[in-house]
Design a protein around this nucleic acid. Structure first.
Lengths: 215, 215
DNA sequence: CGGATTTTTGGACAGTCGTCAAGAATTTTT
DNA sequence: AAAAATTCTTGACGACTGTCCAAAAATCCG
């Protein structure tokens, strides 16, 4: 009996926990949108609440403080951001296909999720001033580097050669290009983006060593 | 007589204007230091005044509002930042010398002026959220791109070849590498910086086309 | 249904912010 | 040295912030 009662209690407890967690992610999503719209400096709890369907007081029912809420939102972002090229990597059969698929995805997300990306760079920079996010930001940055490195590594594999640079440098350069594209996208400079896209194709070439001719 | 009196008035007026301008730059410097220390989000007028020898009220005597003050500080930054490689470019006699001089300067300023650089990236990102700085930021970014392009161009010249990329891409990639180095520097990861420095030498090579052998 | 629990609201709080203005302090001019 | 113009300080203002809490509302459960 006790056991049955306990499992029942457990079931109830679990359901409540799930509900609680669901609302937490719901509010974290609203937070992410607000941050993407206004930037870190201008985002207040009342603005966040206004983007959700609740009042500002509820945020302290589900989160300890603003820090806690934003940290959660940042982790939410990670899930979205780091699996972007997995499909292309798995499916592409040749270097050219992988390169072009990667670039297509690269620029598509640059345009579609522009506000979210500018938030990422905002938070990464913010973490250079405050300790608080640093751990999470560094974790996400590591994942992003891995992601890029998988693309470059697979490219090299398909081309029968090796990457010309280290993982860190490759990521740094491609990230720099992404930032530039993002700024162009937010400025609406479409034709310049076209040019950038063409040039990125060449850069991917630079990142691979010349294949050694079979002796 | 009237003319003499006028020139005297003019002299007085000019002296007052100069004094006024001198204090403005003095306060703009204090603003720049505060921004570099705290970041844009945390910088308040009272904090700025505390870093100067005046009280917070004086800021509104010399500047219309916070916007005005920060804009002035940003322009102050530009003057410091954009002439960094001029000496090396002018003096270097060969590719290797220019490349190594550039890289030395690159990493020296990354370490010495780390707080100022993280501020630059903070403001550049901030301008993606607010209209206000955008014009000034874009102007500075253009100057930075030119600066890098002069280095790459001169390298190519000395090597008897051409740059392998456009100005925009070269800047984007090198800027990405700088940001990575900056993050490492602020984290105190000295040995990783060493590695990055070595790798940058190779990257500069990648930015130049292979010299065409004389036919 | 009716009591217990969870969830949500909306206002109050202490603090900080940018801005401003009245007047003290200082410098300049006569 | 007196008068005039300037530079600077100080305190106040309204608005906004994160946080907290009492009470209303909604939900759950016997």
């Amino acid at each position: 009996m006790t056991e049955v009662a306990e499992t029942k209690q457990n079931r109830v407890a679990r359901r409540q926990v799930d509900k609680f967690e669901a609302r937490r992610t719901e509010l974290a999503v609203a937070t992410l949108h607000t941050l993407a719209d206004l930037g870190y400096a201008r985002t207040s709890l009342r603005e966040i609440a206004q983007k959700s369907e609740f009042s500002h007081g509820v945020l302290h029912y589900y989160f300890a403080d603003k820090q806690d809420l934003i940290t959660r939102a940042v982790r939410q972002y990670e899930a979205v951001c780091v699996t972007r090229y997995d499909g292309v990597i798995a499916e592409a059969a040749g270097v050219a296909e992988l390169r072009d698929g990667f670039i297509a995805e690269f620029f598509a997300s640059m345009r579609t999720d522009a506000p979210l990306h500018r938030l990422w760079y905002d938070l990464r920079n913010q973490s250079l001033f405050e300790e608080s996010f640093r751990a999470d930001v560094e974790e996400i940055d590591r994942r992003r580097e891995e992601m890029i490195w998988q693309v470059v590594g697979r490219c090299a594999e398909l081309a029968g050669t090796r990457p010309a640079t280290s993982s860190g440098i490759a990521y740094a350069m491609i990230d720099g290009i992404f930032q530039r594209g993002l700024r162009l996208a937010l400025a609406g400079a479409d034709e310049e983006i076209e040019r950038l896209q063409d040039e990125l194709r060449q850069v991917v070439g630079l990142l691979l060593e010349e294949p050694v001719p079979a002796s």
